[in-house]
Design a protein around this nucleic acid. Structure first.
Length: 468
DNA sequence: TTGCAGTGTCATACC
DNA sequence: AGGGTATGACACTGC
C-alpha cells in the first residue's frame, strides 16, 4: 500500500511536469493493479507451495517407511509364534512382495484342478473371507457375534497389537473362522439392494479395519510396486493362508462360490486404522455394523489399493491391478472374455479399472494444479521485474521530457527576445505565439487570433462529426 | 481439539 | 455409445 501511494505521488509529480502522460499513467496503474491483484490471489498458493516442497522432501522417507512397515507387519504376525524368527520375517516379506505378480496369479490358476476335497474347500472358503476382509485394527471388532475374547482376553490381544500399529490381521481372522464365522452369511447379511456394486458401500458394513498399509502420500507414482506395497495388508494375509491350506477357491467351482469369494474380497474397504482408533467397545462395534452404507462409505477410500488387489486376486485374474488399470481397453475386454466372468464380476473389474484411472487422473490433475501455481508464481516474479523496469523507463522519459520542455522554453524566450515588431519594439511573448506551418514556414501570431482559429477548427470538427 | 494438507472416490461435463 | 480425461466436491487420515 505504501508502494501504491509512493508510486501515485511520483506519477502525479511526473504528470505535473509532462501534461501528456495521462495515458502512460493509466497503463501503469492498470498494470500495477493487475500485479497487486495477482499477488493477493496467490498468497494462498505460495503457502501451499511450501507444504508441497516439504512433501517432496519427505516422500523419499515415506518410500523407505513402506518397506520397513512391511517387515514390521510380518514381524508382528510372527511374534506370537516365534519371537526369535527374524529370518522368517525376511522370507515372508519376500513372499508377500511377490503376492500379486502376474506370474503368481497365473500359477494360481493352473493349480485349481488339483484341489478336490470339498470339505477342505468349505474350510478354505471360510478362511478366505477373513483374509479378504482382514485388516483388523481392533480384535474385538471382528464380529458382534463372535467372541474372540473367549479365546484370548482383550488385554492379551491389545498387548499383541500394542507392539505394532500393524496388528496381525491374518491370525485374528483365522481365530474368527475357528469361532464358526461364516463369511458368506455375513456378506449376505449386509448385501443391500442399490448398493454400489458391493465395493465401498458393501464393504462399509464391515467393522474390520486395515492394518497400516503404508498408505499416505504416494506421489504420482502409479507403478506396480506401488500397488503391491499398498496391497500388503490384505494381500499378505491372503497369501499366508494359501500356504497354510492351499488354494481357497477353484476355477471349477460354481460361479456362485466364485461370486461369494468376489463379494468377500470386495467387502474389504475399511480405512486403515490404528488399534487405538478402531471401535473399542461392543456398543461402538454394533453401531459400526449398523451404519448405513453411505455413512461409512467414504471411510473406506484409502484402502482401495489393498482391496482392488484382493479383488483381482479373488477373481483369479492373471493381471495385477495396475495392469488392469493401465492395459488398453481392447486388452481389457479380451481379458474379461477369456476369464468367462459373470456380469457382476465384469462390472466389478470395470469399477476397479475406472477407479484406478480416475485415481491417476486426480493425481495428474493435482500435479497440474501445482505446476500451474508454480507457473503463476513465476509470472508474478516476471511481472514484478517488468514493472520495475517500466517504472525506471517511465522516470527516464519524464526527465527527458522535462529537459526538452526547459530547452523549448529557453528557446522561446531567446527567440522572442530577438524579435521586433514593425515599429522596432520587442514582441511580448505573452501576447504572441510562434506558429509553424506544415510547409515549414514560421509565423509570429497574436494569441487571440490563434484562439479564434482554434474555436473555428473545433466547430468545424464538430460539424464534420455530426455530418459523418 | 482444531486446522491443514494429502489422498481416494464420486459425480459430472467434455472429448 | 462407450471409454477416457479433467475437475470440483466430499470425506477421511495423519500430522
Amino acid at each position: 500500500m505504501a508502494e501504491d501511494v509512493d508510486l501515485k505521488a511520483r506519477q502525479e509529480a511526473l504528470d505535473d511536469c509532462s501534461p501528456h502522460q495521462g495515458g502512460d499513467q493509466l497503463e501503469l496503474r492498470e498494470e500495477e493493479e493487475d500485479i497487486n491483484q495477482s499477488n493477493h490471489n496467490h498468497v494462498d498458493s505460495l503457502l501451499s507451495l511450501e507444504g508441497y516442497l516439504q512433501l517432496l522432501s519427505s516422500q523419499m522417507e515415506n518410500m523407505l517407511e513402506v518397506s520397513l512397515l512391511e517387515d514390521i507387519q510380518v514381524a508382528s504376525s510372527s511374534r506370537g509364534r516365534d519371537s526369535s524368527s527374524s529370518h522368517h520375517n525376511v522370507s515372508l516379506t519376500q513372499t508377500l512382495s511377490h503376492c500379486f505378480s502376474p506370474c503368481d496369479a497365473t500359477l494360481l490358476r493352473t493349480d485349481y484342478p488339483t484341489q478336490a476335497n470339498s470339505e477342505m474347500r468349505h474350510l478354505q472358503r471360510q478362511e478366505s473371507f477373513p483374509q479378504s476382509s482382514s485388516n483388523i485394527a481392533n480384535p474385538e471388532s471382528l464380529l458382534p457375534g463372535s467372541n474372540l475374547t473367549g479365546l484370548f482376553s482383550a488385554a492379551d490381544i491389545r498387548n499383541l497389537t500394542a507392539h505394532d500399529d500393524n496388528f496381525d490381521e491374518i491370525k485374528l481372522m483365522s481365530l474368527a473362522s475357528e469361532e464358526g464365522f461364516d463369511p458368506i452369511e455375513v456378506s449376505q447379511l449386509f448385501e443391500e439392494p442399490g448398493s454400489d456394486l458391493g465395493l465401498s458401500l458393501n464393504s462399509s458394513h464391515s467393522t474390520t479395519f486395515h492394518s497400516v498399509c503404508s498408505e499416505g502420500a504416494v506421489g504420482y507414482s502409479n507403478d506396480v510396486k506401488s500397488f503391491s506395497s499398498h496391497g500388503l495388508g490384505a494381500g499378505g494375509g491372503h497369501r499366508q493362508e494359501h500356504s497354510k491350506y492351499g488354494q481357497v477357491e477353484y476355477p471349477g467351482d460354481s460361479q456362485c462360490s466364485r461370486e461369494a469369494t468376489l463379494q468377500q474380497f470386495l467387502h474389504n474397504h475399511a480405512y486403515n486404522q490404528l488399534p487405538s482408533q478402531a471401535a473399542s467397545t461392543p456398543e461402538h462395534q454394533q453401531q459400526m455394523w449398523m451404519e448405513k452404507p453411505n455413512e461409512v462409505k467414504d471411510r473406506c477410500h484409502n484402502s482401495t489399493d489393498t482391496n482392488v488387489s484382493s479383488d483381482a486376486k479373488a477373481l483369479r485374474i492373471p493381471f495385477s491391478v495396475d495392469e488392469i488399470v493401465s492395459m488398453p481397453v481392447d486388452s481389457f475386454n479380451t481379458m474379461l472374455a477369456k476369464n468367462h466372468l459373470m456380469d457382476t464380476q465384469v462390472s466389478h473389474l470395470r469399477v476397479i479399472r475406472r477407479r484406478g484411472k480416475n485415481k491417476a487422473a486426480a493425481q495428474n490433475c493435482r500435479k497440474r494444479k501445482l505446476n500451474a501455481l508454480l507457473d503463476l508464481e513465476e509470472d508474478i516474479r516476471n511481472l514484478q521485474t517488468q514493472k520495475e523496469s517500466l517504472k525506471k523507463e517511465h522516470s527516464q522519459c519524464s526527465r527527458s521530457i522535462s529537459k526538452m520542455k526547459q530547452k523549448l522554453h529557453n528557446l522561446y524566450c531567446d527567440i522572442f527576445s530577438r524579435l521586433r515588431d514593425d515599429q522596432g519594439r520587442p514582441v511580448n511573448p505573452c501576447q504572441c505565439v510562434i506558429h509553424c506551418s506544415s510547409g515549414g514556414s514560421v509565423f509570429i501570431i497574436p494569441k487571440h487570433l490563434v484562439k479564434s482559429e482554434q474555436k473555428q477548427d473545433s466547430e468545424n470538427e464538430q460539424k464534420q462529426k455530426k455530418d459523418g
